[in-house]
Design a binder for these strands. Structure first.
Lengths: 330, 330
DNA sequence: GCAGACTTGGAAACCGCTTTCCTGGGAGGT
DNA sequence: ACCTCCCAGGAAAGCGGTTTCCAAGTCTGC
């Protein structure tokens, strides 16, 4: 590989001058030398070694993003938002997928720490297990002790800047909207009990129904994905309206109903949560709670990059979007 | 940050010994010292500085993946496949999204080169513009001249190892399958004319029809995305069967028909290409050509990591999947 | 009990770049 | 004309590791 020294030699200047010309500096370099250096670099096809720069400068321009699964459009949208924001800041992005394995998440934070990345973004829902969360917090603390910055999208469980969707409120609003339509018997496809996002959405929904004086819904736990929604839907009893705690599960539920000849929304209404863009053409169109995922990703990056010493927790409100997957009763 | 020197000092050993204990080496270290070093590292919370390691070792364990758009499930699946493969190799992944801007793609390759990444994967369709492709090739050549490895998923345009979906054949098979169902009047929602993937799929389809002695289809160009499919569908004439060159466009087309009250497949049949997983619950279920996207991503990484000096180009066959979005005529 | 072969630990060179510090020369002030 | 100040250019000291090369010790075999 061509090094800066090669360029300097070819241009007949010192290393320092070559560095100042090519890799940015506050110092001026005379026009003549500048031209010679640039020409030499061009002829030789010089590319600065970023590892060396990072080492010398003591700061890198890489950020790390940790998500569960890139093929899940929810994470893809969040990651995309963060990546676009990173690009405008001239930052490079390292992406890690954990496939929901907390150990992987911890390992990834350690690695990003080793990379001395400028910031790390933890995206997605975490389990409430204090042992695992504790170790993740330790690893993050270690990273932050070394000057690293971190932010997270999801719950405020980690003691870092957080962009938190207002899961409880969103679910509660949805519940009220559905009750407004005349529904009284509900089921919740609630996802895993220990997953905080899922639990919050479920709780918000249940509480809102309680406040309205409606009977408690049937709560069915299961995996947080499409197949989980599918399976849970087959267990739902005589509810007139089913709330899946995320859109992907709702789609699974719709598939289950379709296969069994249960008409949506005629026989049963279905609602989800997130408003995944890829699903906007789904039939029937899904009633859901819209979250501004891209903005949330971008905002998380902003928080991570910011100086703010006190830990910031931003609630992001969702917006209930009624579509054809629910019907008015009576 | 805690450095190796801090650890060595705390353990009362030399830098060399500490390095050998903590960061892997062929050399043995005595059990007593080893234990002291490990304890010191643990107490101090030492994390090796990867930038320094990369510099010293002259090799990094990072690979770069360049995709157009992570929120497009096609790229997400490909990237996911590659990332899973990378994880099993213990490699870190740097992901860049270009949003279809060729300049960004070139810039990203330059940056990955500067990072001295082990390999770079270019994923996705490229435009046929020789000027742009030439510059990308130059940048890649420069990278490879420095010992870098590259592979690409898409067309064999770059002179690097390539995993290429058999677009022509897949489209041709699809055409024959549709003709078998009795269709004779076709339209192709063909995407941008200069996009090689789109052009190949269109050409394969058109040629197959020609071979069958059927009339040439109406070819409608437009963007390669959902809205492109939507717009193109509104321009389709009296075809009984519409082929969108990718699934996302097909979904757009289905949306357009739905809005206009055109029934699919009763009034018109629709087929796509890719078999995007997220769309498997779409209604009506989409007839398409299945591509093993995850495997392709993984395979591309394998090729990039491999030693093989001669450039490998692997064709990956697609499989026609007939679903309810098409009907039998007669 | 001793020469020679292996091991183990440490000193120091090196990876490629940034940046501080120093030097010499030209500009500006009086 | 002299002195100061400023600025462009270069030498060299890091940044945090790895690895080569030595030296000293430990084992073996006879």
């Amino acid at each position: 590989m061509v090094t800066l020294e090669d360029v300097a030699k070819q241009a007949g200047v010192s290393l320092a001058t070559a560095s100042r010309v090519l890799n940015g500096s506050t110092r001026q370099v005379g026009a003549a030398l500048r031209a010679r250096v640039e020409q030499a670099a061009d002829e030789l096809g010089y590319r600065a070694n970023i590892a060396a720069q990072t080492l010398a400068r003591g700061a890198s321009n890489v950020i790390g993003i940790v998500v569960h699964d890139l093929t899940d459009p929810y994470f893809a949208a969040l990651a995309d938002g963060a990546m676009r924001a990173a690009a405008t800041e001239g930052l490079l992005v390292m992406v890690g997928t954990t496939h929901r394995d907390p150990e992987q998440e911890i390992a990834y934070v350690a690695t990003l720490n080793a990379q001395r990345v400028r910031a790390v973004l933890l995206v997605g829902s975490r389990v409430a297990d204090p042992a695992v969360t504790g170790r993740l917090r330790d690893e993050l603390a270690r990273y932050q002790a070394g000057g690293g910055r971190a932010a997270c999208v999801g719950q405020d469980l980690l003691g870092v800047d957080t962009v938190a969707p207002a899961n409880r409120q969103g679910a509660a609003e949805l519940a009220r909207a559905l009750a407004d339509l005349g529904h009284t018997r509900f089921a919740v496809l609630a996802g895993p009990p220990h997953l905080v996002t899922a639990a919050d959405r479920c709780a918000g929904f249940v509480e809102a129904l309680e406040e309205l004086g409606l009977p408690a819904p049937q709560v069915i736990h299961g995996p947080f994905d499409r197949d989980g929604g599918y399976a849970a839907a087959t267990q739902a009893g005589d509810a007139t309206c089913v709330f899946a705690v995320n859109d992907v599960m709702a789609v699974g539920a719709l598939a289950a109903y379709r296969e069994r000849g249960v008409r949506v929304p005629d026989d049963v209404s279905v609602a989800g949560f997130d408003d995944i863009v890829t699903l906007r053409d789904h039939v029937p169109a899904l009633t859901t709670v819209r979250l501004p995922l891209k903005d949330m990703g971008a905002r998380a990056l902003e928080l991570a990059l910011g100086e703010g010493d006190p830990v910031v927790v931003e609630q992001v409100a969702g917006e209930v979007v009624l579509r054809e997957s629910v019907r008015r009763m009576t």
